[in-house]
Simulated scan of single mutants.
Amino acid sequence: MAYLPISTPGEVGGPDGYSYSALVLLTDAADPAVLQRLLGVIRFTGWIAPVASGTQVVIGDPGAGVVAAERRGIIDVGGLVAERLECDALAVQVRRDRQLALVGWRGAEEIGRYDSDPSAEPGADDDVASEPVGVAFAPELAALARTPQAAERLTEILAEELERDSVSESERLRSILRLLTLPDWIVATGSLPADIPTGPRAADLTRLRVGMPGAAGLWRHLAVRRVRRRRTPPPVIADPPRESAPGMEGIEPWMF
Rank of each mutant, 00 (worst) to 15 (best):
L182A: 01
A33N: 12
I75K: 04
V187E: 07
I59D: 11
V67T: 11
V224G: 12
A49H: 07
R172P: 09
E140F: 08
F44A: 08
V128T: 02
I59V: 02
E121H: 12
P246W: 14
A159G: 01
P200T: 03
F256L: 05
S244A: 15
A202L: 00
I196G: 13
I111K: 01
P235L: 00
A136C: 04
L208C: 05
I251Q: 11
P234F: 05
E171G: 12
V224L: 08
P118G: 04
G123I: 13
S53P: 09
R164G: 14
I196M: 08
L4K: 05
I75G: 12
E160R: 14
A91C: 06
I111H: 01
S244G: 15
S191G: 10
V167M: 01
V227N: 07
A143P: 13
A101I: 09
P62Y: 07
C87P: 13
P32G: 10
T147L: 14
A120E: 07
D28E: 14
G123T: 11
L218F: 13
P246K: 13
G54P: 01
G250L: 04
R209H: 09
D115W: 13
P241Y: 06
S244Q: 08
E121P: 09
L26F: 03
G104E: 01
P132C: 11
R209C: 15
I74Y: 12
P9F: 02
D195W: 02
Q36C: 13
P118W: 05
R72F: 11
P122Q: 14
D76V: 02
S191E: 04
D204Q: 08
I48S: 04
Y3K: 10
R174G: 15
G211K: 13
A108R: 12
E252D: 13
V94Q: 11
P200C: 05
I111R: 00
L38M: 06
A52F: 06
E169C: 09
I74S: 11
M1Y: 08
G60L: 03
R229C: 06
A91D: 06
A49R: 11
V67W: 08
T27E: 05
A120Y: 02
P246G: 08
V135D: 03
A29F: 10
T181P: 04
M248D: 11
V94D: 05
E140M: 04
Q93K: 15
R229G: 11
A245R: 15
D31T: 14
Y3V: 15
Y20M: 06
D61S: 12
Q56T: 07
C87D: 12
V67E: 14
A238Q: 15
V41Q: 12
I237G: 07
D195L: 04
R172Y: 00
V12K: 05
L177H: 00
I59K: 07
V94R: 03
V92K: 03
A159M: 00
D115P: 05
E163G: 10
G199I: 00
A202T: 00
T147I: 08
